[in-house]
Computed example of a mutant assay.
Amino acid sequence: MTKTRWLKYGWYSLWVLLLIWLISFALFIESLQQQIKRSAQPLPPVAAIIVLGSGTVAGKPTPTLAKRLDTAVTIIDAQPSAIIVTSGGIGYGRQRSEADIMASYLHTEHSLPFERILQEGTSTSTQENLANSKIILAAQEVDLAEPIAIVTSDFHIIRAAAIARHQGYEQPITVASPTPLSIRYNAWFREYFAFISGWLLGEY
């Protein structure tokens, strides 16, 4: 095969790969939007509400995390018997766990009593968030067969639900909080690659 034909074949292959990627990305976004719409439906009774961490700055939740906590409050108020778990560990160079900062925000901003909030303060990833939260739920005699709400950002709900099911949560109900507009589309783009990475690493 001549050099010209090799180049032509190479460019053709690249265009085919690009087309496949565009189709897969479009399907991911469509699926994500459908899941977001479903999560807006009224929530059935749940045994527990897990709020996943998303970063803190100067001892306060980032805007993305604050949105998650604000969204969780609407469920917490409607379901006073549900177990509440804030989940997030201690970041590099930090003194307090993310779970502790989340609990403080719920108490300060929404007057939620500290004694209602259980903290999972050792995790560093979604996989660890949900794995470590299982230990807390078991101590509270919450069965993983029961409906459990997982509050996270809208872009993250597909991956969070997949990881939860893989870890034995039989009825995970993901609740989507809105991502701040300034980072929304970048977050959705990055989440596509995170989802593929999680699949390759066997997280679900």
Rank of each mutant, 00 (worst) to 15 (best):
Q95P: 03
E128H: 11
W6I: 07
E98L: 09
S97E: 11
S133G: 10
R190E: 11
S177V: 00
I84D: 05
S153T: 08
A78C: 09
L17Y: 12
L18H: 11
A176N: 04
I50Q: 02
P63Q: 14
G89C: 10
V85N: 03
A187F: 04
W11P: 03
Y105H: 01
A99D: 00
L201V: 06
L43C: 11
M1S: 15
S123I: 08
L137K: 07
A187G: 01
S111I: 05
Q171E: 03
A103R: 02
S24K: 04
T71L: 02
T62C: 08
R116C: 04
F28C: 09
A66N: 04
A161Q: 07
A82V: 02
D154Y: 02
Y204H: 15
H107V: 03
Q167R: 06
S111F: 00
E203A: 08
P63W: 04
I173K: 00
I49D: 05
I29G: 07
A162K: 07
A138T: 12
I158T: 09
D154R: 07
M102F: 06
L137I: 12
N132V: 00
Y192A: 05
I173A: 01
G55T: 08
L19S: 11
S24D: 14
T126D: 08
A72Y: 04
P172K: 02
H166D: 12
S197Q: 15
S24C: 14
I163S: 06
S182W: 14
A48V: 06
A82L: 02
F195V: 10
K67V: 01
R94F: 11
Q171C: 02
L118C: 08
Y92E: 14
H156M: 07
W6P: 05
Q140S: 11
E115Q: 14
A58W: 09
A145K: 10
S153N: 13
G88Q: 00
P44T: 10
K60I: 05
E109H: 13
I117Q: 04
L137A: 09
Q140A: 11
R159V: 00
L137R: 06
I101H: 07
H107Y: 04
G53Y: 06
A58V: 07
A131M: 09
N129M: 12
D100L: 10
I196H: 10
R159K: 13
D77G: 12
R116F: 03
G88T: 03
A58F: 14
G10A: 10
Q33T: 15
A78T: 10
P80S: 11
A72K: 00
W199H: 14
G10F: 10
F28I: 12
A161Y: 07
W21I: 11
D154L: 04
F28R: 05
Q119I: 07
D77M: 13
L14K: 13
I101E: 03
I50P: 00
R96E: 15
S182P: 04
E115D: 15
S39A: 08
W21V: 15
L18N: 09
E146F: 01
A164K: 02
F193E: 13
P172N: 13
T74F: 05
N132P: 08
R190K: 14
W6M: 14
L17T: 15
I183T: 12
P42K: 14
I76Q: 05
R96P: 03
E120Y: 09
Q34V: 09
Q79G: 05
I136N: 08
L69S: 05
R5F: 07
T179F: 00
T179S: 03
G198S: 10
L69W: 02
L22P: 01
